[in-house]
């Protein structure tokens, strides 16, 4: 156990050397690539350039939610509160990026579809995802930092949420595909994407992915610090009260 946490600390030290520069450079390259290098999409025009932040954002959010699920299992299994901090950090970043996906998607949808919002299957499931993890954060924020029962409750809720996602996807697809919408979804899945677009998209994956990992690390550290502070305060109060 000690060697594992030692190894984790070493990796953590490396992250500080690697993540900020990598995400910084990749994000710069992504902005230039998305706005200058990538060709203009013929059907949707300039606004299609939002793809390079919209699509990587939702993938980063999915990654973050996967981390939440794994960390929550470890919280229940090992009762290690450090993983509770990781789960909270990842959930915050997941909610942030889901929110950014919804926001950029709405701004993309207005000129292309003619509406900011529609109860399409994918939009609905993304919104439900946002709501589930926002509720998770809310529940966690309502409880005391050191409340282990609340941490386990949140972990159970996160696992429920993760296992609910397939059901949500399934149900909204059944619900919507039976009522075809006049709106054609963006042709993002088009395999005949020009190589420049693909390259910029790959850089965007790298940049936003590294940014999300870095933000998760920062946030988890903040949560862990908050726990340590609360524990220290409890000790100090007991000491001075005695």
């Amino acid at each position: 156990m000690n060697s594992i946490s030692g190894a984790l600390r070493t990796v953590y030290g490396w992250w500080w050397l690697v993540l900020p520069p990598v995400s910084g450079v990749a994000v710069m390259a992504m902005i230039i690539g998305a706005l200058v290098v990538a060709p203009r999409e013929i059907v949707e025009g300039e606004v299609q350039r939002l793809l390079y932040i919209h699509f990587p954002s939702i993938l980063a959010a999915y990654g973050a939610f996967a981390v939440v699920a794994v960390a929550s299992v470890v919280v229940l299994w090992r009762r290690d509160m450090r993983w509770d901090a990781v789960a909270r950090g990842a959930a915050t970043v997941g909610v942030l990026f889901t929110g950014l996906t919804l926001a950029t998607g709405a701004l993309w949808g207005k000129p292309v579809w003619g509406t900011y919002w529609t109860w399409d299957a994918r939009l609905t499931s993304t919104l439900v995802l946002f709501l589930i993890y926002a509720a998770y954060l809310l529940a966690r924020a309502m409880a005391d930092e050191l409340d282990e029962a609340a941490a386990r409750f949140a972990a159970v809720f996160a696992i429920l949420g993760a296992l609910d996602i397939p059901l949500v996807m399934f149900s909204v697809t059944w619900w919507r595909t039976l009522h075809p919408q006049p709106i054609v979804l963006r042709p993002g899945g088009n395999p005949a994407m020009p190589p420049e677009m693909l390259l910029v998209l790959l850089i965007a994956f790298l940049g936003i992915g590294a940014l999300a990992v870095w933000l998760t690390v920062l946030r988890s550290e903040a949560e862990w610090l908050a726990k340590r502070t609360a524990a220290l305060r409890a000790v100090a109060d007991r000491y001075e009260g005695a």
């Binding site: 606004v47 932040i53 950014l100 926001a103 000129p111 940014l211 933000l215």
Partner: peptide, 20 residues
């Protein structure tokens, strides 16, 4: 129409970076 689209592109990027 071209101009409208640029506005939305700008708004999208602005919202994203402002959020981060």
């Amino acid at each position: 129409e071209h101009l409208m689209q640029l506005e939305f592109l700008f708004a999208g990027f602005a919202v994203f970076w402002a959020g981060i």
